[in-house]
Simulated scan of single mutants.
Amino acid sequence: MTEEPAVLHTTGDDVLSITLNRPETLNALTPGQREDIIRLLSEASATAATRAVVITGTGRGFCAGADLRGTATTGERAPGDVARTLRTGAQRLISAVLDCEKPVLAAVNGTAAGLGAHLAFACDLVLAARSARFIEVFVRRGLVPDGGGAYLLPRLIGPQRAKELMFFGDALTAADAERLGLVNRVVPDDELEKTATEWAHRLATGPTRALALTKHLVNASLDTDRATAFAAEAAAQEINMTTADAREGVRSFVERRGAEFTGH
């Protein structure tokens, strides 16, 4: 019997679905899985027929973080080894989500810990099953948060809340994550897939280039001053007005009908 891939991916209705598929490990990420996700996100950006992306997991876990089994904890390291591993590994994964030119939706079906939590938080929208849990697990292992955690969390919930989660490493329920602003919506477990499909369809039928430009503006806004942000906004609007979807949007308003966007 052929073993299933560790990362499943399907495309339908202009939506790329990426599913982590190592349920026996709560979908702890291997380097191979990480590279598959990075490649798929890069391809999604360059593929006109892909207009939205969903990331989820099989079984009881969304992603339990990086799979540390087999990772050497003793022996000599060359200077820069750890930093280099992070730059080329976990940080590339988070950057791939943030830089993807299509909206990325996380459908968190279970435990999201460490890098797995940051993978979800890097997504543009986050749906969580009621049974989902988010854990900044690094402190429990005597580690510094990586995978962009100290960048993402303060921007989402402020520095004090971010420090609380990272200093104590307590499990955060889906409801508490929603209350803090880490999750857009919590749904019953048996409605997660249905809701994710509905949201992805709405994204995939939207003005794709406008969404990409909006994503870039929002992601960059917290790292820049007002003058730069306003200049970027004006430039994005200038670029977007050359698209067919922008022309369709204006025309549909004038004609008093719903817009039909094609992603061009």
Rank of each mutant, 00 (worst) to 15 (best):
L143N: 07
V250S: 11
P23D: 11
R155Y: 03
A128N: 04
A72P: 04
R256H: 13
E76I: 10
A162F: 05
A204C: 07
T262C: 12
N21R: 00
N109Y: 01
D99A: 12
G206C: 12
E248Q: 14
F121C: 01
L93H: 07
R84D: 13
D124Y: 08
L217Q: 12
M241T: 14
L152C: 01
D190E: 15
T10Q: 09
R51A: 15
V104N: 02
F167M: 15
I94G: 05
E43R: 08
E164V: 06
E136Y: 09
A227M: 01
A78P: 00
A232M: 10
V104W: 05
V187C: 10
G110S: 06
G12I: 08
F138N: 15
I239R: 11
V82L: 14
A107M: 02
M1D: 04
A196L: 10
R22I: 04
E24W: 04
A162M: 08
D223C: 01
A28C: 04
P154A: 11
V54T: 09
R179W: 01
F168G: 00
P154M: 11
R77F: 07
A120V: 03
A234E: 11
R202L: 14
A234T: 09
R77K: 09
I239Q: 11
V15D: 02
F261V: 07
R84S: 13
A229C: 03
L20D: 03
Q160T: 04
A129Q: 03
R22F: 02
A259M: 12
H216C: 05
I37R: 12
V186Q: 04
V7G: 05
A177E: 02
A235Y: 07
P5K: 04
I18D: 08
D170W: 06
